[in-house]
Measured scan of single mutants.
Amino acid sequence: MPEGSASLQLAVGDRVVYPNQGVCRVSAIDVKEVAGQKLTFVTMRREEDGAVVMVPEGKVLAIGVRKVASAE
């Protein structure tokens, strides 16, 4: 991610809310080559049905992904 860009610090195992998809758990953060460029992807699995969603790390905030609020 370019320096100075806002990002959401995620780790494998974090629970997040993905708008219009529901609650997901981060299952992987991997670098993949797409069209000759190396990009970091956040892979999330929906808790409702296990569907897998992959989002480029740089788009996580723009999409509206946020961490699940704690009970505290």
Rank of each mutant, 00 (worst) to 15 (best):
M1D: 11
M1T: 11
P2M: 13
E3P: 10
E3C: 04
E3W: 05
E3V: 11
G4Q: 13
G4V: 11
S5L: 10
S5E: 12
S5V: 12
A6H: 13
S7C: 04
L8F: 09
Q9A: 09
Q9N: 11
L10D: 01
L10Y: 03
L10V: 14
A11E: 12
V12I: 09
G13R: 00
G13I: 02
D14K: 00
D14Y: 01
D14W: 02
D14F: 02
R15Y: 14
R15M: 13
R15S: 05
R15W: 14
V16A: 04
V16T: 01
V16C: 00
V16Q: 00
V17P: 01
V17Y: 15
Y18D: 03
Y18W: 11
P19Y: 07
N20R: 07
Q21W: 15
Q21S: 08
Q21R: 12
Q21L: 15
G22D: 04
V23W: 05
V23A: 04
V23F: 14
C24D: 00
R25M: 12
R25Q: 09
V26L: 02
V26P: 01
V26W: 01
V26H: 00
S27A: 11
S27I: 14
S27E: 15
S27N: 06
A28R: 09
A28K: 08
I29P: 00
D30N: 10
D30E: 14
D30S: 13
V31R: 06
V31W: 06
K32P: 01
K32T: 07
K32V: 13
K32M: 14
K32Q: 10
K32N: 04
K32F: 14
E33M: 11
E33Y: 10
E33R: 06
V34I: 11
V34E: 06
V34Q: 05
V34Y: 08
A35E: 12
A35G: 14
G36L: 02
Q37N: 09
Q37F: 08
Q37D: 05
Q37V: 12
L39M: 13
L39P: 01
L39K: 07
T40G: 04
T40Q: 05
T40F: 06
F41L: 09
F41Q: 02
F41K: 01
F41E: 01
V42E: 00
V42Q: 00
V42N: 00
T43L: 08
M44S: 00
M44H: 00
M44T: 00
R45M: 14
R46N: 06
R46G: 04
R46P: 02
R46H: 05
E47P: 01
E47I: 06
E48L: 14
E48Y: 14
D49F: 03
D49G: 04
D49Y: 03
G50N: 08
G50L: 03
G50K: 02
A51L: 11
V53W: 15
V55S: 03
V55M: 10
P56D: 13
P56Q: 07
E57H: 08
E57M: 15
E57D: 05
G58L: 11
K59R: 08
K59D: 15
K59T: 14
V60M: 15
L61K: 10
A62C: 06
A62D: 10
A62M: 07
A62K: 07
I63R: 04
G64M: 08
G64Y: 08
G64T: 06
G64P: 05
G64L: 09
G64R: 03
V65I: 15
V65E: 04
V65F: 07
R66A: 09
R66H: 15
K67I: 15
K67G: 06
K67S: 05
K67H: 10
K67L: 15
V68E: 09
V68P: 11
V68C: 15
V68Y: 09
A69R: 05
A69Y: 11
S70E: 14
S70N: 11
S70P: 13
A71G: 13
E72F: 10
E72S: 11
E72A: 11
